[in-house]
């Protein structure tokens, strides 16, 4: 039998049973929050979701009664994936560097800086994008406010937490394997590449997923730099609108069916995130089974 936290047997007095109940309650509460949100969103968008209201078309023109969400769905996915593509490679490099190559105090300082950047409000990032990045891009490819601008700002926003979480996963892997690998005479870079990154991968995947979720859900920053035109992007420099930006832009001024359609945007996003998470978990599980378990 493999040793794992769960099947280490402890003496089990009353305190443990109380502890177990408390813990089960917390886990139940998390599940309940999720269920409540799903219920709320579904109820709020039900009147459009379960009839053929044309949500699956391109045209979004609330004043004309057209509530197509497809273009914004594409926008959301495109922006988030591009942001991940931009942020993940440097994120990993930074985590590895901070843990294994930088002098300890520099690494610590670097992680501190990342924690700090993570708490800059998205408005500030968005504002910077609006006054610095968009005019810059505009010189190269008008109107500047675009898929690319949004992805860049998003990448900048998700990078800090990505670095911190990758760092945590690498640190654990390091504790387990670095000494052994170094004793065998391997170089640090070789060890990182061949031992530590593969070991940390199962934890890196959820960390990246969490950031994908965050990118999909980011509102204020994207709203300021994406251009918000409802269309399928024909270029990386074309303006697009995401589902979240759509909610934030129009919710305050919507009523009736228009409002319901905005709730449906939220519902769609929710389903999208669920699907992505399910798929990615399946991939991660297969990858986890494929590699030799080092525990």
């Amino acid at each position: 039998m493999i040793l794992s936290p769960v099947n280490t047997s402890f003496r089990s007095p009353a305190a443990d049973r109380a502890l177990f109940r408390a813990l089960a309650f917390s886990a139940g509460a998390v599940a309940a929050i999720l269920a409540l949100i799903l219920l709320y969103l579904t109820l709020a968008s039900a009147s459009l979701l379960f009839v053929d209201a044309g949500l699956w078309q391109l045209r979004w023109q609330p004043s004309a009664g057209a509530y197509g969400l497809v273009a914004m769905l594409v926008g959301s996915v495109a922006v988030s994936l591009l942001a991940l593509l931009i942020a993940v490679p440097p994120g990993l490099v930074l985590a590895v560097w901070g843990r294994f190559f930088a002098p300890p105090w520099v690494g610590g300082l670097y992680r501190g800086a990342m924690g700090l950047l993570a708490s800059i409000p998205s408005v500030v990032y968005g504002f910077w994008g609006l006054v610095v990045l968009v005019p810059l891009l505009n010189r190269w490819a008008p109107p500047g406010a675009s898929l690319l601008a949004a992805a860049l700002v998003l990448a900048l926003m998700i990078l800090p937490i990505l670095v911190l979480q990758a760092d945590l996963a690498l640190d654990e892997a390091r504790r387990r394997h670095l000494a052994a690998a170094m004793a065998l005479g391997a170089s640090v870079s070789g060890t990182v590449r061949r031992v530590l990154l593969p070991t940390a991968a199962p934890q890196l995947v959820p960390a990246v997923l969490l950031q994908l979720g965050r990118a999909l859900g980011e509102t204020m920053a994207v709203l300021m730099v994406a251009g918000n035109v409802v269309q399928l992007p024909d270029a990386i420099t074309a303006p697009i609108r995401t589902l979240t930006a759509n909610i934030a832009l129009e919710m305050a001024y919507a009523s009736g069916e228009h409002q319901t359609a905005l709730f449906a945007s939220g519902w769609l996003l929710f389903v999208l995130v669920t699907l992505i998470m399910l798929g990615a978990r399946a991939v991660a599980r297969r990858a986890g089974e494929g590699r030799v378990d080092a525990h």
Binding site: I37, G217, F270, V273
Partner: peptide, 23 residues
Amino acid sequence: LQLALDILGGVPSIVFGLFGNRF
């Protein structure tokens, strides 16, 4: 539970806002 956490982490903040306002 892990999936629930992933999804909850992926729910856009603006949806939390609407939900929190209502609930």
